[in-house]
Design a protein around this nucleic acid. Structure first.
Lengths: 71, 71
DNA sequence: TTAAAAAGAACGTTATAATGGACTTTGTAT
DNA sequence: ATACAAAGTCCATTATAACGTTCTTTTTAA
């Protein structure tokens, strides 16, 4: 998989809030194992898991029409 | 779950492109069953499934810091 | 430089998403 | 009204995410 930019967004936001993986796990209700796996690029979370993380971090998920020319 | 706005974004985009669920299933490689379940609000897709749909529809997934006051 | 904290890896078990198929309901156009 | 297409529902099987725990590696601070 490559959700690199999404993973990076989560990690960057978490760090900017100075929250550890353990703390985010508690705050979000997502199991520590699932969070670690996801942040280390080895996961494929369900939308509900991603949303729990985003909610805890004050992030919103949006879908936008791509304007860029077809990569 | 309530991914209402995400579901609506997918459906709206699909319809604006005049693509049927069957066609989107073919285009994206996501099984018809999974797509139907998701669009009817009964699913919890993995990120890879959501991304396949977005890719096929020319949508990108972005995470933004919420500016709104804590719902 | 070393002790503690944080992040990553590896497990077995349980829950559930993905798939493919058959069938039903709704929408659309003739 | 009626035929066809599209959307929705249900089912069994397979694949895999979520969870909890333990252990290892890396980072950070004293």
């Amino acid at each position: 998989m490559d959700f690199v930019s999404i993973i990076e967004a989560i990690k960057a936001r978490r760090k900017s809030l100075k929250v550890t993986q353990n703390a985010l796990s508690d705050l979000s209700g997502v199991a520590l194992g699932a969070l670690k796996k996801f942040e280390s690029g080895k996961g494929n979370p369900t939308l509900s898991t991603l949303k729990k993380l985003c909610d805890a971090l004050g992030l919103e998920i949006t879908l936008n029409v791509k304007k860029t020319i077809n990569p």
